[in-house]
Design a protein around this nucleic acid. Structure first.
Lengths: 258, 258
DNA sequence: TATTATATAGTAATATTTACGGAATAAAGG
DNA sequence: CCTTTATTCCGTAAATATTACTATATAATA
């Protein structure tokens, strides 16, 4: 959605293409530099940030919509993407969605009764992505993007703070039942890397020996013969996920702590 | 919604009162006779059953809508009620919602473009209730209700089988993190009762001594001095939930198995 | 008072989780 | 080339949690 023509069609006729009163908000988690980050977009004219999101086409399955929106934004397909909550308790209209704002910020003349100003419930999805593979696409409404540390999120538009918090909570709970990492780490990674990923997600220290023992015992990762040769210190061995066991653990669930 | 006038207003003008394209489906779990049951309604004229559900008013918070719908149907308020998934991958229109059906089954003349025939995504909630306290209210569209064993559910309308299965899965997963029972059992209950409740929900046997040890160790229940005096056998002691610990476990979560 | 079905309780074996320190090693700098 | 530095990596013992298991008490009925 880049040409003005497309934008105007979206604003004026969007209600014909999309289901009204509903949107999808994606919390995209990436991991970099020992930090868990989420991707936020800066809205044109605002100094505020918001989650990437979009609408569901009238005949499009919900999960397809979520994947499409994510792919349009990050160019990544076939990702780990999971619905975690539908938000519908916030005020029935939000102050950021009024004609005046559209005029001032975006230079668009929009009527009071435009579909974009109606009450909108949002369906939260979260994704886990390999930070380094993402290439973000901006559009007419956004003029910047940035990866933010999860414990240093700026003010967000609408009630999206709640969305981010719930996503994080879900992720932290889920890590006790499902392996995580396949989509957050490069294909080959070191023990310290995955260890630190788990510490970061859970927000607490994990004994490094017990942690790797656990992953190895569960058969989720395997040691390779290669080492990574960077840094002035002892080179760590590389590891890889055991695809089969990982998939099974995803499906069947695991009961344990780390 | 009982008078014909009300029904006609709902059918013809519902789109003015309710958000379109969205509905709430409730999976109401009750426990009775060593069986976990769910409440189903029989649709007038159909031989098929469906979940109780309803729509969200245009200015009504989502969670309020869920509680309202549950209360209208069961006369119970302030229950444990939890959203578990939004379903939106089924076909964009369903065969059960067409003018012909409304004419034949309900004797209503409805136009092809009526709001009730549009694509509807449904938000699944599940509730845990004390079976014996429920008094079901039927309405114009339903002519019977019944509690069904969870492992003996009949054919359901639309894609509601999937909804029920997901609810059950969520409940079974959740029982490892949260205490359950407060809303499914009478205030005072026996060890065998709560033991059998957990076995029923999890669908597997639990050692009775270890189970009660666990609940007592966690401080979730306490023994009373009373006994229940029914049956021709040794009278079991009554137990009660420890409200404070129970609430905390609900909030903080517990990590353990049973 | 004997019978019957059910409720209740404790201990030992096993498995899991936690706690903890020291040797190996890769590069950089003197 | 030797020392320093920061990091990886390894194993075992103690504590804790889970599992497995059966005999006695007891309430009502016949």
């Amino acid at each position: 959605m880049n040409s003005l023509e497309e934008v105007l069609d979206f604003v004026n006729n969007g209600h014909k293409y999309y289901l009204p009163h509903m949107s999808i908000d994606s919390v995209i988690f990436g991991y970099h530099n020992q930090q868990l980050k989420i991707l936020l977009l800066k809205w044109k004219g605002y100094n505020e940030w918001g989650l990437p999101g979009g609408f569901i086409k009238r005949r499009e399955p919900l999960s397809k919509a979520a994947h499409r929106i994510l792919e349009e934004r990050t160019s990544l397909s076939n990702l780990f993407l999971q619905q975690f909550h539908m938000f519908g308790d916030s005020p029935y209209r939000v102050k950021e969605r009024i004609p005046q704002v559209f005029r001032e910020k975006f230079g668009l003349e929009v009527e009071e009764d435009n579909w974009l100003f109606e009450r909108t419930l949002s369906i939260g999805y979260f994704a886990l992505v390999d930070y380094s593979k993402v290439s973000v696409t901006l559009d007419f409404f956004t003029d910047d993007y940035q990866w933010w540390d999860v414990d240093d999120i700026p003010e967000l538009l609408f009630d999206q703070k709640e969305v981010v918090e719930k996503a994080l909570l879900t992720l932290r709970l889920q890590i006790y039942h499902q392996p995580i990492g396949y989509n957050l780490l490069p294909q080959k990674f070191t023990l310290p890397e995955i260890h630190s990923l788990y510490e970061t997600i859970l927000g607490k220290e994990l004994d490094q020996r017990n942690f790797s023992k656990k992953l190895l015992t569960l058969g989720l990762i395997k040691k390779l013969d290669e080492r990574r040769n960077i840094g002035p210190h002892r080179a760590p061995y590389l590891y890889q996920f055991e695809k089969e066991n990982y998939e099974e653990a995803l499906k069947e669930g695991i009961v344990h702590t780390y």
